[in-house]
Design a protein around this nucleic acid. Sequence first.
DNA 1: CTGTTAGCGCGTTCAA
DNA 2: TTGAACGCGCTAACAG
Lengths: 348, 348
Amino acid sequence: MTKASTFDRKGRATIVDVGRVAGVSDATVSRALNKPETVSAKTRARIEAAIAETGYVPNPLAKAMVSGRTYTIGALVPTLNHSIFSKFLHALESDLSDQGYNLVVAVTDADRDREVEKAKKLLAMGVEGLIVSGLSHNADLLREAARFAVPLIATSYYEPSAPLPTIGYDNKIVATQALAHLTALGHRRIAVAHGPVAGNDRTRSRIDALADPGEGASLTFYETTLDYAGGAAVVDRLEGPYSALLCLSDVLAVGALFQLRSLGKRVPEDISLMGFDDLDASQFTVPPLSTVRLPIQDMGRVTARAVCDFLDSGSPIAPRLLEAQVIARASTGAVPLAPGASDNPRGS
Amino acid sequence: MTKASTFDRKGRATIVDVGRVAGVSDATVSRALNKPETVSAKTRARIEAAIAETGYVPNPLAKAMVSGRTYTIGALVPTLNHSIFSKFLHALESDLSDQGYNLVVAVTDADRDREVEKAKKLLAMGVEGLIVSGLSHNADLLREAARFAVPLIATSYYEPSAPLPTIGYDNKIVATQALAHLTALGHRRIAVAHGPVAGNDRTRSRIDALADPGEGASLTFYETTLDYAGGAAVVDRLEGPYSALLCLSDVLAVGALFQLRSLGKRVPEDISLMGFDDLDASQFTVPPLSTVRLPIQDMGRVTARAVCDFLDSGSPIAPRLLEAQVIARASTGAVPLAPGASDNPRGS
DNA sequence: CTGTTAGCGCGTTCAA
DNA sequence: TTGAACGCGCTAACAG
């Protein structure tokens, strides 16, 4: 008895130890733990006592090893510093958790290589599913996921013809919706502010959709950094008589709003301002910001359900289009009637 | 021998399969994978070919099982919808990842029971460390972490006498710093807006520190919801001639700012406004918001290092005080000289 | 109702 | 340089 116990490296008791002090086999202990009704009350009591005495706690790794399951899903996001992604993860985690799954998150900093690298790490730790943001074109990612035979889902994007299931909104349609809101108000000369295009296919899609605006509208694009300062900077760079500024992200719009105000420009009297995302703050700015509400919560929910359904019952993961919605608030208004400023045949 | 291949349930090849097609033992394959230099170039080539042919990919679970390690850290946060937490996680993940660890996140919705519940799930999946926000008083949490023998660290809080290591700022000191900024400007009648106290020991501490303000100052506390709307609501409830409004969170301050503006009150001429957190947006509001910058990034970094050092080399995890910093911007100013409004013997 | 026997896939002795 | 054997902690199958 000097040291007959089977302790693991951390000095913790194993199921065998419990069995020994309870005077039963390890298999019985296992049963008492997993199917209590198949064990007599008496021995069950002895086992429980033994568990308490030894301080036994099941080894998760061993369980996972035999079941072959980790109940863990991995998510790759460009950043956690933008609420759009953290909100998504919040919703994702909640639903995943409800279904008994855990969420591992990895930040890619919008770097394709880092994305693959981190994906590998997640795969190597045993995630059963991988969720990425946008339609990554890095073939390695697809291949790695395939090697490990785990489902790979792209979010914030809807593209049924993609090589992997996409769950999200159609960035082209969404951009078009926003533009339609502005043209309906009579705007023709519009400035568009957007974040870096490199490595961001959502932004790319939105811009592409705007390339041929129709309606006699003319758009000018301004790329900037994706933060408040970036939005403010665009305002300083603005050239020409724009009647509206469309920001492909509320963060930019809020930044722009502050800068416009500092310059003494009135919104929407002097220029209409529209955003994208519908941040919490957007309804509280002065004036409240017109924007496009992206279905972020739904996206988290739907994505979680899709992976879990696949993992639990093998249901294939289908692409899913979620709808965005234009929220018209006070930051956009009819284009001012400047004589000779446009060829638009309205009013007096 | 009809079916001599050792395929796991998912039909994937194992190290044995590779060995068989390469004509070597599984042990050799293992070595070729982990210590290539101990295997002859020739057999190594054969093994690589076999790996390619079989599409073998190492089973993470089995590895973890024998090594007893998962390289996974769990973090429990109240929400991901507040940038203070997502920024923390961002920093945490980056550093953890650099050291070869993965991060599992669980959202508690500021509910103690759910916190314990989720902690158990994380422990059951094999995390090697647990990070929580604030000084949770739920004894179960401490006990569970102890049962599984994983380190438990509290963040956003510094309290060296706590039963678990704390890494963060001293909420009492921080609150005092903010108050000092206001009193130095001559403010005496100050309104304090804060989020729900229930289940939030950080807020509790800040309020406690303000209980006895000294300097002849008198504070009135307003509890509200922790969002922009909550900040705006406080403004409507304000009673009495306050010369300053101190919000224990920038979100509240920004909400309050918008509402003050709507009501035609000037900041800081009519009332000084101060926040807490230093959000990205805070420097872009009009006027820019005076606030207290919390060392969130550092906290993520330091916390990551602490867990990793402990796990990698057994260095004990010591409590760590991080310093916050008052950022004086334009939203706070000297108290207006209203005759008879105060006993403060300044200027003429 | 309970014990025995067999793995799960991999790393690590210890011989050869 | 390589192979055989064993162990990690647990669950499942089959006896008894």
